[in-house]
Nucleic acid binder design. Sequence first.
RNA 1: GGCGGCGUACCCAAGUGGCUAAGGGAGCGGUCUGCAAAACCGCGAUUCACCGGUUCGAAUCCGGUCGCCGCCUCCA
Length: 481
Amino acid sequence: MSLKLYNTLTRKVETFEPLGGNKVRIYVCGVTIYDRCHLGHARALVIFDLLYRFLKDKGYEVDFVRNFTDIDDKILSRAQEEKVSWKEVVQRNLHAFQEDFKDFGLLTPMVEPRATEHIADMIHLIELLMQKGVAYASDGEVFFSVKKFPAYGKLSGQTLEELRSGTRVEVNPKKKDPEDFVLWKASREGEPSWPSPWGPGRPGWHIECSAMSLKYLGSPFDIHGGGTDLIFPHHENEIAQSEGATGKLFSQFWIHNGMVTLQSEKMSKSTGNLTRVQEILKKYPAEVARFFLLTAHYRSPLEFSWELLEQAEKAVSRGYTALKSLREGLEEDQLPDKIQDLLPLQNIWQRFEGALDNDLNTPVAIAVFFEAVKAIHQAFANSKRISHSSHQPIFEEAQKGFRKIASILGAFEKDPNDYFQKSRLTQTSLTDSEIHAQIRLREEARSRKDWKQADIIRQKLYDEGIVLEDTPKGTIWKINF
RNA sequence: GGCGGCGUACCCAAGUGGCUAAGGGAGCGGUCUGCAAAACCGCGAUUCACCGGUUCGAAUCCGGUCGCCGCCUCCA
């Protein structure tokens, strides 16, 4: 099975083959830490995390780099607004990032470089660009000369003229051509600055990603990722800088994820049209958010609403319910003696992998998972459970497949009981033992057929966010999301 | 204006030339249950924005129309 990915550079789905044998090198643009992250950031993080997991599973040795932009105009203006130091803004939002994403199942990248820790690398790169004659200094600033790089526009599919016609920003008079972009900025009074051959200043936005990716991955490397909104100008400029400096191809694949929308409009920090990760985690486990982000293909826009998140939660619960039956059936050696339809349970991993091989088609991959979930439910609902079921090998195989799938999705990895009972803090103030005490009281009421009292207890728990289910094995409880 | 993409059931979402148009959620009827919940069974798009065309055959290819979105400015 070979992985096919849509390459923005060629605008085609292409078979992915690493440049360096078994080694895959990926660079993904991370976030600028001037504010709390919203769901759009989460989507990019989750999608590239899935790709990372999938490549590792295929046996590749993956060098995965994801940066933090910790110096730029927004950070400075935020610091000014709040009358705190820019370092404080950075530190606070870095903590917030870690807090927001700690339960998202994001694998730790090989390196998470920060721009401010690579100033020297950027200066070197700029010097190299100056030597090559594609960059020029002007009054303490350094610009990249776009017309010296003939391939400019190859990623965004636009010619220089086309890009020019759309120019809406006022032109910095220090530039020779309006499309030139800044590599190094002169610092103003009170702004952070680093010494450089062109005077004290700070790096432009694009140069950090070139410097850090080239440093940790070399070039060419395999995959460069980020949101579609980064294609122009950020990634276009990265290509210009990196290829201009090295004379070599920068990245062979460019993968871009679609935007998360809110009321059909792109989520964006600058417009305030957003839902923060933090808000979502108050109502749902991170796992539900992660699952939700994978329900659409990564290149499509994904509309967020609380109703859609609720739908995702229902789906996750359904999955866990099946995993719970399967797990307990195997543990207790009480498995169905009949299975109506074996197909959905066979080769689930292969079919799941096949879906992801097709340009990371997570909706199909998830559908494969749910076909198997349904088959488990059917078997357990429509057949007697016996010990030493002749179907045990099939169920064991299915469980292995589920585990493998879960390890790629980064969801359904928990003990189902933990998912149902511990996956978030509810509004409930009740402790485990208090809930069990209530359940025991209700059991007593039920045993004397005092249905009224039993229902009062159940309703009381329901009001506390706890749902009871009476099963043949006794009453169990779940958090009601 | 340029570039890219989308429009599939009540909602979300796959399918990119040919088995009965996946999967999830909601709804309705039924089974189970003291009642619920969960789960199961059944129902639900003769149809894929619209109009033409190509083809033995199209949601899938081509042309046009309408509507929506992203980028062209900081942005995942």
